[in-house]
Write a protein that binds this DNA or RNA. Structure first.
Lengths: 125, 125
DNA sequence: TTCATACTTGGCAATTTAGCCAAGTGACCA
DNA sequence: TGGTCACTTGGCTAAATTGCCAAGTATGAA
């Protein structure tokens, strides 16, 4: 038996509007995810969820060179996740997007499930 | 005026259990996000959300070398996002995590907001 | 105007990632 | 037993990412 080759000739159930548009949308999503896919940037987002922070505060949290911190923040900003505001000699960053909480809840679910599966795997040996 | 330096000496409002544990959790989350942070893998997840697929179906979707597709699937599997099952000579992959829908909703919000901001930026010139 | 603080930007080296090709494994057919 | 199909794995190169240092800009204080 062969797996049904109806991937094309579809009756418009599921994803894919036009190939090109779909590709563009996946690329756009990937850009956002890539911005989040780093421990330090994830930490920044987590802390910014509690309120705005200036760069030097985030530098203390990360324990990295200021230039490195600045570049991480630029990545998050370019992805549309945070915005900055200069007040005096300080630059404050804050989250743009209130929905990131759900986001992390979902990731935690995945991690939990992963842990459970790993345990099951060990038990069945 | 200086920004309040109470980042340490905190009264346990907000994130950070212990520095080491926090770092580990951010790293774990980043691993999951990194797995999702690629257009092709995102497309796979999107299609798998509609039901299981064998590798060659996904290969057709992506238009990439079979070995490349296989490696992308390995990345998703190692991140705990999908699981595989061999039936006959085919290997079928399916999603582990039903919550990925919310995930994408959130990303779409970010993208929309980004588009709006960009428009506003253009308008104010 | 001079100096210090708070960043940002450019440039570099080390590491990681993404793609392909080639070779290997396992299931099924003749 | 030999061949084909459906994958996976190893190895390679090109490109992207992450960190630091050094240099530049902007704000406020002396």
């Amino acid at each position: 038996m062969k797996p049904s080759p109806k991937t094309r000739g579809r009756t418009d159930a599921g994803p894919t509007p036009t190939p090109a548009a779909a590709r563009a949308r996946y690329a756009a999503r990937a850009t956002v995810l890539k911005a989040l896919a780093h421990p330090v940037r994830l930490m920044f987002v987590d802390h910014l969820a509690a309120g705005e922070r200036c760069v030097c505060e985030l530098r203390n949290l990360a324990g990295l060179d200021l230039s490195t911190v600045s570049k991480h923040l630029t990545v998050l900003k370019n992805a549309g996740l945070i915005q900055d505001e200069k007040r005096g000699q300080w630059v404050y960053y804050r989250l743009c997007c209130p929905c990131l909480g759900n986001f992390f809840t979902c990731i935690e679910n995945i991690l939990k499930r992963q842990a459970t599966t790993k345990l099951k795997g060990l038990a069945s040996k």
